[in-house]
Computed example of a mutant assay.
Amino acid sequence: MGHVTALSIGLAGALIAVGIGFPLPWMLGPMVLVTLAAIGGAPVKAPLQIRKVIMPILGVMLGSGFHPETFEQIAEWAETIAYIPLFVVMAFSAAFAVYRFIGRFDPITAYFSSAPGGLNDMMLIGAEAGGIERRIALAHASRVLIVVSSMSFIFWYFFEVRSTGQSTQSVGFADLSQQDYALLISCAVVGAFVGPKLRLPAAQVIGPMILSSLVHLAGLTQSAPPTAAVNVAQLVMGTVVGCRFLSVPISEIWRDIGLAIIATTGMMFAACLCAILVSQQTGIDIKQTLLTFAPGGLPEMSLLTLAMGADIAFVATAHIIRILLVIAAAPIMFRILKIRSRY
């Protein structure tokens, strides 16, 4: 029943956030209220089974952002992607300095806590390398929470974008035809099955996203995700993020969140710098480049992009490349640095 309690608290948080005009209420409201409930010891449990259903749906949503005209933007995409390695190095270095020299984490825990992406992978690889798994997980959960919250308020305060449905046209379930539903459900089911077989990162999202993008690029459907489905996805993802703080001592939570705020500020500075440079060189709207480089999780940043009405294909592709780069390079660099430290 813990997951029902968590979702109920999350729904209450969403409704409160909507009522008071909170930015991105359907994600931020549940995230904040469930986090407070988890820290306070409430009997909440992450709705992971529901999340398994939501993730393929999210992948289909991301794929719907691709369209035949997408290829006309490849040049702009290439210039943006070229900055991703620079961003990863800058963000990684800034966070490592915080966790190692301010937080006094051991080198292994500090290293895997500093990666700007790949929460589950960094937690598992870091634990196998001898790091403290709970601290690595808490560092990444805090990063996602802080990035989504800060980006929501940045868009609310500076760009006056408040919530889902205000930046994009509302889409109802009745707006999709039976053919649209058949195609999109097939993408979700087949992609969720094939993705893990191909060992894709975030396979439950990327598998359906690839199939959905192919369907949309081929022009077989141009349907947009229903607004209600986006809101439900945000509710579930916000609740899951909040539940990550369950059963962690309050003293440890506040200390590590404080460190995460400092580390994430360094990451966000790197993201803002790269976003400004790309925007100046390509003419892409600064709102979109900020979403592109913000070091949040793929599901959370994708939902944020949908809510803000930005180019989901562009942003999601950049985040996937960032996560792939982190997952591929972080273990290799760790082994190189570990070998060099012996001499």
Rank of each mutant, 00 (worst) to 15 (best):
A78L: 14
I284H: 08
G258M: 04
A95T: 12
L7H: 04
R340D: 08
M333L: 15
G172P: 08
P208N: 07
H319D: 02
A97F: 15
K338W: 13
A95Q: 09
L11V: 11
F314K: 10
G309T: 05
L36T: 11
G191F: 08
A310I: 06
R104M: 09
S163D: 15
A42P: 09
A6P: 02
L220A: 09
R51E: 14
T265P: 02
I276F: 14
P295R: 12
I50N: 11
I108E: 05
S150G: 09
D285I: 00
I108W: 03
F96V: 04
A310P: 10
M268R: 07
T80N: 11
R335A: 11
T5I: 14
S223P: 08
T264S: 12
L24C: 07
A270Q: 04
F96Q: 05
P331R: 01
R143A: 07
I146V: 10
L176E: 01
Q49R: 14
A91D: 00
L220W: 15
Q280H: 10
P47E: 06
V278Q: 03
I154C: 04
D106W: 05
F66V: 04
I154Y: 09
L28P: 00
I261S: 11
I312Y: 04
R135S: 14
L58G: 13
E128I: 09
M122S: 02
I253L: 13
I74G: 10
I84R: 06
R100S: 11
